[in-house]
Design a protein around this nucleic acid. Structure first.
Lengths: 237, 237
DNA sequence: TAAGTTTGTTTAGAGCTATTAAGTAAACAT
DNA sequence: ATGTTTACTTAATAGCTCTAAACAAACTTA
């Protein structure tokens, strides 16, 4: 098979995979996580049960593949928001990406719910699974922007000596894992922001704040203002 | 049947319920969420399948009851930590309760995982379910302490006029739902702290921060220091 | 004390599910 | 034209939820 071309077989298989993913997603959205069974998905694409095992090793792998799709779609949406503002100040692009992340989550709560609370959590945390790789690309988006911000207009950081050594060691390891694009103390600030932002979204989608808030949009905007302050990007809207 | 006494039947039934819950919990901890099936639980207590339907209407209700148990155990643990420091400054009791919450979550990750990401989320959100009632008592613990702090040494609050009206309306409704023990602007501060604290725990247990942190204890302590500052309880350790 | 009701449990069974195995038909490669 | 790979089928096993029907024991009441 010549490189660059894809055989007819490969194209047919790819189309089948997409149909399968679409069926699984529809079932998830319309009937909830429990409805995404091998048999139900197969029925929906007009196959009979065991045929799906020619595409995935089992239920868990199917779920993992579909979840990875969601993460990639979310990532792509965020990257589009970033690229649509090419040339704009970094702070502005960061805010746009954050808002886009929440918009996608709100528009696709079932999909987003699976991203961090999928029914098969353990197998999807293996370092070479599609789900894991997609997660890494997802994390990259805001990390890249924060690294760019750090390069062009460094934000205030804490004194590394003031951090407990147990924490500093972990931050140093993380800093190395991202090729030193952020030093440990800047990684600390980045992670603080990430925890607040993503944690808030996580709680919103998992309905952990319903007892007080029905609409978290103003709370999210407040969180963005905090982050704007922490990262010293005052100019951004 | 005289009030205050419990018939032999009721006692036997209560014992059976406890045995069932224990079996379900063991299965959850030892073999994961998927292992908690009606049949497996029944086998473990020496009954045969359908017998469990005399105790619960079905799988979802069993899961809900067990989850409610977890929330009650967590709540009781937090209340003990609070009462063990009776007479101590409120700030100190708040910190002890927060640390106890995390300790329980770390010691019982499978149980805590079910609390906010149980396999049957929807039915457990009904206002009169045991799970929902347990959740309300859980929220009370830190709310009570914060209300006491507000009474005895009010913490700084934002100008209500500075809040978007959509948010202020929700805070006003929440303030009324807690009998005005915190005015809307104080409820805002309380909820901000709650979101950061509980959100961090949520992400830790759901392994959303593994890419950077293996041990979140220093991050949690950092969060507590932030909260100490926000609530103006500088003295507390 | 005897009869009737409630409660707890059983087995049988329908209708799902995941998964494996074996067999068939078409497409591709040589 | 032959053989291999790929995609699919049906059959079968074992597990699951849940309903139905039957039966025994325990309580209630006359």
């Amino acid at each position: 098979m010549a490189a660059g071309t894809s055989s007819r077989r490969a194209r047919v298989r790819q189309a089948a995979l997409e149909e399968i993913h679409g069926a699984a997603r529809t079932l998830l959205v319309e009937q909830g996580p429990a409805a995404v069974t091998i048999n139900a998905v197969a029925r929906r694409v007009g196959m009979s049960g065991p045929a799906l095992y020619h595409y995935y090793a089992g239920h868990d792998e199917l779920v993992g593949a579909v979840t990875a799709d969601f993460v990639r779609e979310l990532t792509a949406t965020m990257e589009q928001a970033r690229d649509a503002r090419d040339g704009a100040p970094v702070g502005e692009r960061i805010l746009a990406v954050c808002r886009t992340m929440r918009s996608w989550a709100i528009a696709h709560p079932a999909e987003f719910g699976w991203v961090f609370a999928s029914p098969v959590a353990a197998p999807n945390r293996q370092p070479d699974s599609p789900r894991h790789r997609a997660g890494q690309q997802f994390e990259q988006v805001l990390l890249d922007l924060t690294a760019e911000l750090w390069r062009t207009s460094p934000f205030p950081v804490p004194d590394p000596d003031g951090l407990p050594s147990a924490q500093l060691d972990q931050l140093t390891a993380y800093s190395e894992s991202i090729d030193g694009r952020l030093p440990p103390e800047a990684a600390h600030v980045f992670l603080s922001c990430w925890i607040r932002l993503y944690g808030l979204l996580c709680m919103e989608v998992l309905h952990q704040l319903d007892f007080a808030y029905a609409d978290l949009e103003p709370v999210f905007e407040e969180c963005l203002r905090d982050i704007t302050g922490i990262l010293g990007m005052a100019g951004a809207a």
